[in-house]
Computed example of a mutant assay.
Amino acid sequence: MQKLSNKVAVITGGNSGIGFATAQRFVAEGAKVLIVGRRQDAVGAAVEALGSAATGLAGDVADLGTHDRVAALVAERFGKADIYMANAGGIRIQPSLAVTPGDYDAQFLANARGMFFGVQKIAPLLHDGGAILLTSSIASRKVLDGHAVYAGSKAAIEAFARNWALEFKDRRIRVNVLSPGPTDTPIIGKLGIATEALSQVEEQAAQAIPFGRMGEADELAQAALFLCSAASEFVTGVNLAVDGGMTLT
């Protein structure tokens, strides 16, 4: 039996990487999926790849108007939703002394403010017994070079999750966090690292992981499926690191 049969899921940042892999998993398990991404062309291509069970909306999660449009589309198209995965975000790797107010704001607007108000807008449309999943990062707990602002923005959403797990308990809405370690996704190529240095960066990341390799997007998607399905119906307020043991080192 499909694990998400007749469920409706919303995934921000669902057009690539972990978000897209999760959308694929959810569709395979019987869900209807609304993916949200910044670029219309990328969202359109992802919807085409996902098939008739997918709907797309182009919008930036840092823009609060995007969340109004997501909620309106869910209400119009589906009436309610069962799963909300707040996965979209941004990162700029740089030493703290080089961070500008613009650098800081860009990360907190997307990662913390955007996530907070995305949940605020969608919560009234979630069925009782639904699931909220926030994508964080092991950087909130493990110090990584150049990640101070990013880590702070992710730590904020982990605090949101703990609070929401209790705020929404009377509706039996579970709120959990997924914290990836280094994962082989297109975002690696967007970190400002020279193309010729990418293989070295990936090799260094693999060496820092006890399992000896980076994670795959589908491995994160499988964890997301667990946290959003009935398999975890007695789990709320947890932060699941999917990192090959990297936070242990």
Rank of each mutant, 00 (worst) to 15 (best):
A110N: 12
G129A: 14
T135Q: 13
Q94D: 14
G129W: 00
K142A: 06
M115R: 04
S137K: 04
V119R: 07
V119K: 07
G102Y: 12
I122W: 03
P124F: 08
L134K: 07
P95Q: 13
L144M: 03
L144E: 10
G130D: 00
D145V: 09
I138N: 10
N111S: 11
A139R: 06
P101F: 11
F108W: 03
K142Q: 12
L125Q: 11
L109A: 14
P101W: 03
A139W: 05
G129H: 07
H127F: 01
M115N: 06
S96K: 01
L134H: 10
L126Q: 00
L133C: 04
Q120N: 02
A139L: 04
L97K: 13
G129E: 01
D145A: 15
Q107F: 00
V119T: 14
R92M: 06
D103Y: 12
G146P: 03
Y104P: 10
K142S: 10
H147R: 10
L144R: 04
T100I: 08
F117M: 03
P95F: 10
P95G: 14
D105Q: 04
D145M: 12
G146E: 11
D103N: 15
K121H: 09
P95K: 13
Q107Y: 04
L97P: 05
H127T: 00
I122D: 01
V99A: 15
F108K: 00
Y104T: 13
Q107D: 05
A131H: 06
S140A: 15
R113N: 09
A131I: 04
D145S: 14
Y104K: 05
T100R: 04
T100G: 06
P124M: 07
S136R: 04
R141Q: 05
H147E: 12
P95L: 07
Q94T: 14
L134T: 13
D105N: 12
L133H: 03
S140R: 12
M115P: 00
F117V: 03
A98L: 15
R92V: 08
Q120W: 00
Q107S: 07
F117C: 01
H147D: 11
V99D: 10
F108T: 02
D145R: 12
G130M: 01
G114T: 13
F116K: 02
T100L: 06
L134A: 08
Q107M: 13
G114L: 14
H127Y: 02
R141P: 01
M115S: 11
V143A: 15
A112Y: 08
V143Q: 07
F108S: 02
Y104W: 15
G118A: 08
G146T: 08
V99H: 08
L134Q: 11
K142F: 03
I93Q: 14
H127A: 00
D103M: 11
R141C: 02
L97H: 14
D145F: 12
T100Q: 06
K142L: 10
T100H: 11
G118K: 08
I93K: 13
Q107R: 02
A110H: 10
N111R: 09
I132E: 00
A139F: 05
V143M: 06
I132V: 14
Q107A: 09
S136I: 01
Y104E: 12
A98W: 10
